[in-house]
């Protein structure tokens, strides 16, 4: 678990800023100070929370707000399947630890070839959860004092953050192809599909894994074990 905490420490700084931004936005959207904090503690999925609150802010209605959150979190179904084999223990414990899965904790716990280190995932998830809820609370309760970190260019930190997480995954031809196809799919769909759909559709790029050689032959991805282990730390 400690390894996971170390791996996400640099990312936690960005997540804290993102949490503050969410708190500020939710407060200004009229959610009050408590609902944003409860949402971060129960939903724990930044992009979905931003989307839902933005819809409410634009008077889009409850159904559209919830739907946007569901679409943005739809990717957690395949992500959950990917970590499931490595998540042992009782039903309740699995369900609870599954909630600590976010893009960042999932990525740093990836060991390549479809393997995951659940200890690292939980350690990273706990750190990110605490940071996310604390950031939200700071933004929702004291946003006026802190100001919105968005003006500091925080929105540019996020593509950079995902780039940090992507780099150790690119360990051979197949992962590079999957990344290129995923990126192209997402970009093509942004103008025509509702938010969230481009991302979850990009997941289909992993069907490349069915082509050609068998799973056993994807040797080069083994390298991801070492570099993926430290994830963001390797930079």
């Amino acid at each position: 678990m400690r390894g996971g905490a170390r791996a996400v420490a640099p990312l936690a700084v960005a997540v804290l800023g993102f949490g503050i931004s969410f708190g500020v936005l939710a407060r200004s959207a009229g959610l009050g100070p408590i609902a944003p904090i409860v949402m971060s503690a129960t939903t724990f999925a930044g992009s979905a929370q931003f989307a839902a609150v933005s819809v409410l802010d634009a008077a889009g209605g409850v159904a559209a707000a919830v739907l946007s959150a569901v679409l943005l979190n739809a990717r957690y179904v395949p992500i959950g399947v990917s970590v499931a084999p490595w998540m042992t223990g009782g039903f309740g414990s699995r369900l609870l630890r599954a909630q600590l899965v976010v893009d960042e904790s999932w990525a740093v716990s990836s060991r390549g070839g479809g393997r995951f280190d659940v200890d690292v995932l939980v350690g990273a998830g706990v750190i990110l959860y605490g940071t996310w809820v604390a950031g939200t609370a700071a933004g929702a309760l004291a946003g006026d004092l802190i100001g919105d970190p968005e003006r500091l260019g925080l929105d540019a930190a996020f593509p950079a953050l995902f780039l940090v997480l992507l780099r150790p995954q690119l360990t051979g031809r197949r992962p590079v192809l999957a990344a290129a196809l995923g990126a192209a799919t997402a970009l093509a769909l942004v103008p025509v599909a509702p938010p969230g759909v481009p991302i979850v559709s990009a997941a289909a790029a992993c069907l490349l894994g069915l082509a050609g050689r068998s799973a056993r032959a994807t040797g080069p991805t083994d390298e991801a074990g070492g570099s993926g282990a430290r994830g963001a730390g390797v930079g």
């Binding site: 990717r75 084999p85 223990g89 995954q169 069907l207």
Partner: peptide, 25 residues
Amino acid sequence: GGRALPPRLLAVVGLLAPALLAALV
């Protein structure tokens, strides 16, 4: 939870991280 995925599905989910992270970037 705790059940091994069939090898072909494992090969698919092994590419999920690069695909999704590139899409997020």
